[in-house]
Design a protein around this nucleic acid. Structure first.
Lengths: 390, 390
DNA sequence: CCACTTAAGCAACGCTGTTGCCAAAGTGCA
DNA sequence: TGCACTTTGGCAACAGCGTTGCTTAAGTGG
C-alpha cells in the first residue's frame, strides 16, 4: 500500500549535476529554491520581490510559483509590510504544518523518535529504551511502534517519509548497515528497504553524526551557505562535515571518521589498532577527569580539520560535551586561536560553539534527511565564472 | 578592448545551486553537460543514443544540441559505428581546436605557460625563469610576454581566458594574493583584475595544488565522478581536494593545507610554530636521505585524510615524489593498507598512484580553471532521493 | 529483392519563465 | 477631499526549451 505522494510537484526531481535537465526538473528546481528561501525567512516571512531578488527569478515567475505553493497549502500570506510610498508588499511564509517527516535516532540502547514539521520543529517526541543488539525483527517491530506512536500524536499530518540515524558504519546510498558493534547479525542488513516495506513510507538512512550535522545546516547565525564541522563526543568521537552548504558523505558514506585521526603517531595504542588517535587520547583524558586536557586534544584534531577543510565554524555536541560545554568550547577555541596565530592567519577566527538541540539533535537531523531535499540543493556553484576584463 | 566572446551559447550561465533557473540557463546546462560527455569520450567519440542514455535527455534533444554544437564548430561527426542490424550510429567527437585557454604556473623562480585546447592537450608550452619576488609591474610584464608568446605559437586560436596557479595563500573568488613568501609587497595584490586588464582576457586565479588537482579530474581511470586527494611534495607539502567530482576550495580558498597537519603533537617544532607537522617530519626525512621514512610519514597523514574524507584514491606528485615515485607510492600504500586492516575495512583498498603530467601538471591544471566551466558542473547531487516503498 | 531493424530528422506540442501592459492599493501634497 | 505619484501584483501574449508522434534514411539478413 503506497502512502500519500511524498514529493510535491510531480515525480520529476531537480537533478543538479551530471543529469539532463528538462522542463519538469526546472520547475521542481525553482519551486524547491523558493521553498528554501521561505524556510530561511522563518516566521518573519518574505515578500515576492525579495524572493525574486534572492532567487534571480523575475517577480512574475515568483508570483506564479507562490500561487502554486499556496494552492498546495505549502505557503500562505502573512500580512503586509509597511508601505514605502506605494502599494505595500504582501509577506509570504511557509506553512510548517503542511507536511511532516519522522526522524529516528537509533542508538545502542535507546530510540528517539520525532515528528517534525516543514520548519523542522518537532510536534511530537518519544524516547524509549531499545535493545539494538537484539534480532532485526524485534527491532523493526519496536521502530514501527514508535513511528506509529508519533504519527498519531498529531491530527493526521501528511508524512513524507522516515529518516533514520544510526551509529554506522553504513551505506547511505543503499541503506545497508555494515557493522553494529557487538551484534554481527546486523552485518549487511538492508535497513532502508526493510523499514520502507514495513512502514509503507520512503526511508532514508544515514550516520548519526551526519544527521546531526544536517540538522544544524542553516541553524547557525550566518544563514549557512558555508562550511562547518560538527564534532560529536559521546561514547565515541565522530564528525559530520558540511562543505559549501551541503553534507559531505564521501563515496561510501565513510566521511567524518574523526575519532581515529592520528595526532601522536608514537602515542598510546587505540582500540582500532593504531596509535595516538584523537578518540583514544580524548577519552582517556575524560576517564581521568581531565576535561580541559580532553578539550585540548580535541582542539588539536579540530585544528588539523580546520587547516585541511577551511571551515567557517566548529560545532561541538554529544553527551560528554554537554556535561561541561564551556570547558570544551574554551579548550578547542584556544587551540584554534593558537594555530591561527602561529600560521599568521588574518581575518576572523573560526567560531567554536556548542550545537543546538541537545539530546534530540540527532533525531531532529534525521527528519531533515527527508525534509532537506524539498528545499533544494544547498550547494554553491562549483567554480567561480571567469570575470571579464574591466 | 574586449576579446572574442569567452563563453559560447550566450552570456547566461548554468547556475547550479542557490540560483533561479530560467530557459537560457537550462539550455546552457544541457549544452555543457553534452560537451562534458563528449570530452569524457575522448577521441573514440560517442553516438547520439549513448549521449542520450548518459545524460538522461531524449535522443531528439541530443540531436538538437549536437546540431548546435556542430554549427558552432565545437563538435563534429567522426565516422560511424558497426551496424547492429539497422542503420549504424553516427559517432560524434569534440573538436579540440575550436577553443583554447592559457594556463600559467607561477612558481617562486620560474613560469610555465601552456596553451591548451578543449581536450586539455597543450599545443604550446614555454618555460622561463621568473623572479617572483620582484616588483609586481615587472612580473606582470613578464607574464604578458609569455602569454603573448604561447598565443602566437598556434594559428590564431580562439582563447577563452587565462588560468593562473600560484603557491598561495590567496583568494580564488576575488583573485587577490594574500602572502608571497619573502615578498611582502605582494600582500593583497589584485592579481586577477590586474592581469585581466593587462591582457584583455578573463583571468582565474587559484592555488597551485588546486590547479594540479583540477587537472587530474577525469584523467584517472574510473571516469572520475568520485573523490580523490592530490598530495604535492616539493619545496613544501600541500594538497588539492576533489570531493564528489568537484574541486573543494573552502570558503576562503584555504582548503588543502595538508602540510601542517599535526601527526605528532609532542614532536619536533615546525617552522609554522606548531609541533609534529607532516611537512616538517617529511622534509626532515627527505633531508637525511630517508625517502622510505618520508613516505611513511606522508602515509600517516594520508591515512588521516582518507579516514576523514573517504576518498577513492590518493595521487602523489611534486618534485620530491618524482625523484623516487615507486618508494613514495609503496610507502603511502602500505600505511593506508595497514590502517584499513586495523579498522576492519572491507572493500577495495584506496588506490595510490603518481599523478600524470610531471612538471607541467600545474600549468595544465591552470588551463582547466578556464576550460572546466564549459563542461558543466562536475558535482553529484547533494542527497539521494528517498526511495519509495517496494 | 524484400522484410526487418535501427538511427535520425521534421513538425506539432506542452510547458517553462519572460515581457508588456494594466489594475490594485497605498502615500503625500494641494 | 481629491488628485498625482509610487509601488505591487495579475493577466495575456510570447519565445524557447525538451518531448512526442511520425516519417525518412540506411543499414542487415534471409
Amino acid at each position: 500500500m503506497t502512502s500519500n505522494d511524498p514529493i510535491p510537484h510531480g515525480t520529476e526531481r531537480a537533478l543538479c549535476a551530471s543529469s539532463g535537465f528538462n522542463l519538469p526538473a526546472l520547475r521542481g528546481h525553482n519551486t524547491a529554491l523558493l521553498l528554501g528561501l521561505l524556510r530561511a525567512a522563518g516566521a518573519d516571512g518574505v515578500s515576492r520581490l525579495e524572493l525574486a531578488e534572492r532567487s534571480g527569478l523575475t517577480p512574475q515567475a515568483v508570483s506564479k510559483i507562490t500561487a502554486r505553493l499556496r494552492a498546495e497549502g505549502l505557503a500562505a500570506d502573512a500580512g503586509r509590510r509597511a508601505s514605502t510610498g506605494g502599494k505595500p508588499r504582501t509577506v509570504w511564509r511557509l506553512v510548517p504544518g503542511a507536511r511532516h517527516a519522522v526522524g529516528l535516532h537509533l542508538d545502542r540502547d535507546e530510540i528517539i523518535a520525532v515528528l517534525a514539521d516543514l520548519a523542522g520543529t518537532p510536534v511530537a517526541v518519544r524516547r524509549a529504551p531499545l535493545a539494538f543488539g537484539a534480532g532485526a525483527g524485534a527491532v523493526l517491530e519496536r521502530v514501527a511502534e514508535e513511528v506509529a506512536a508519533v504519527r498519531t500524536r498529531s491530527s493526521a499530518p501528511q508524512v513524507l517519509g522516515v529518516g533514520v540515524a544510526c551509529p554506522g558504519p553504513l551505506d547511505h546510498a543503499s541503506g545497508v548497515l555494515h557493522r553494529v558493534t557487538g551484534a554481527p547479525h546486523w552485518d549487511g542488513f538492508p535497513l532502508r528497504d526493510a523499514l520502507a516495506e514495513r512502514l509503507g513510507l520512503p526511508v532514508v538512512v544515514d550516520k548519526d553524526t551526519n544527521a546531526a550535522a544536517l540538522g544544524l545546516v542553516g541553524s547557525a547565525a550566518d544563514g549557512g551557505a558555508g562550511s562547518f564541522a560538527y564534532l560529536h563526543l559521546g561514547t565515541g568521537l565522530g564528525a559530520g562535515l558540511v562543505l559549501d552548504g551541503g553534507l559531505y558523505r564521501g563515496p561510501r558514506t565513510g566521511a567524518g571518521e574523526f575519532g581515529h585521526q592520528v595526532v601522536q603517531w608514537n602515542g598510546p595504542p587505540c582500540g582500532c589498532g593504531r596509535r595516538g588517535c584523537v578518540e583514544a587520547l580524548c577519552l582517556a583524558a575524560v576517564a581521568r577527569g581531565d576535561l580541559p586536557g580532553a578539550a585540548r586534544v580535541l582542539g588539536v584534531g579540530a585544528a588539523n580539520l580546520v587547516e585541511l577543510l577551511d571551515v567557517d565554524r566548529v560545532l561541538l555536541g554529544g553527551r560528554t560535551v554537554r556535561e561541561r560545554p564551556d570547558v570544551f568550547v574554551a579548550g578547542v577555541a584556544d587551540e584554534l586561536a593558537a594555530q591561527a596565530a602561529a600560521r599568521g592567519r588574518t581575518g576572523p577566527p573560526v567560531r567554536v560553539t556548542t550545537a543546538a538541540g541537545g539530546a534530540r539533535a540527532v533525531a531532529d537531523g534525521a527528519a531533515q534527511l527527508v525534509l532537506g531535499p524539498l528545499f533544494g540543493p544547498r550547494r554553491q556553484a562549483a567554480g567561480t565564472p571567469p570575470g571579464g576584463p574591466a
